[in-house]
Amino acid sequence: MPSTVSGKADLDAFPDPFAPSPPVAPAPVHAPAPVTSEARVRHHWAEILGVDGALLSADSDFHALGGDSLALVEMLTAVSSELLTPDQAQRFTGRLDCLVRDLTLAQVCEHLAAAREEVSA
């Protein structure tokens, strides 16, 4: 709070509440950036692990961030149900042995992309 030399509140330092405010130009409207698969996976990791998604990088390790087997199942279910068709989700979870060994954000995204690209036999 502004004060005078004598320590009292300096009422003259406050803005006039009745003065008309200058018009504010509206902020330019930008189209939102498209949400990538990596951003969606990052969101699920942040939510499930209780971490700040902005701090996650491609080499973030799920287990090092506190992920256990239950959180792993929750994350894989959320990611596959949002980003994959049922057939793709089946191929994605079929790669679970590869995912468990190297469970980084980049690896999950790579396996998601591979599950989308594979043609079912």
Rank of each mutant, 00 (worst) to 15 (best):
P32A: 11
A114D: 05
S37V: 13
D68V: 00
R42E: 01
G7C: 15
S37M: 02
E117F: 04
W45N: 13
H43Y: 11
L83T: 10
A54M: 10
C109P: 05
F18P: 15
A115P: 06
F62Y: 03
A27F: 06
C109R: 01
T104I: 01
E38P: 15
D68T: 02
I48M: 05
M75K: 01
F14E: 05
E117I: 04
L65W: 00
L99T: 09
A121C: 05
L72T: 01
S3C: 15
E82A: 09
S69A: 04
V29I: 07
D12P: 07
F62T: 00
A46C: 08
D52W: 14
L11Y: 12
S21F: 13
A39N: 02
R40K: 15
P28S: 06
V41N: 01
V29A: 12
H30T: 10
S57P: 11
M75P: 01
P20D: 13
D59R: 12
G7T: 07
S21V: 11
A114N: 04
G94L: 00
T36R: 06
S21E: 11
W45V: 09
V73A: 14
A113S: 14
A39E: 03
A13R: 04
T4V: 02
L11S: 08
T36S: 04
R95T: 10
P34M: 08
A89T: 02
F62L: 00
D16E: 13
E110W: 12
A58G: 09
P32E: 08
H111M: 04
C109H: 04
D102V: 03
V73K: 09
R40C: 13
P22E: 15
L55A: 12
I48F: 13
H30V: 11
A115E: 04
D59S: 07
S60P: 12
E118P: 03
A71P: 12
A31S: 08
H111A: 08
F14A: 15
R101C: 07
A33M: 03
T36Y: 05
A13K: 04
S6T: 14
H111F: 10
S69H: 06
P23G: 14
S80M: 02
A71Q: 05
G94W: 06
M75W: 10
P22D: 14
T77C: 14
P86E: 12
A33R: 06
Q88K: 08
S60N: 13
R95N: 10
Q107Y: 02
L112M: 07
K8F: 08
L103M: 07
G7I: 03
A89P: 10
D61L: 10
T93N: 03
V79M: 07
S6P: 13
A114V: 10
A39L: 05
L56R: 00
V100Q: 06
A25S: 13
H63I: 02
A46H: 09
L55P: 01
W45C: 10
H30P: 08
L76E: 00
A27L: 09
A78V: 07
S120D: 07
P28E: 08
A78T: 00
D97A: 09
S120Y: 00
T85W: 09
R40P: 15
D61K: 04
A46I: 01
L112S: 03
A114W: 02
A78K: 02
A13D: 14
A114H: 06
A33I: 03
L49I: 07
L72K: 00
L105K: 01
K8E: 12
A9M: 14
V73E: 13
R42Y: 06
E74P: 14
A27V: 13
V24K: 02
S120N: 03
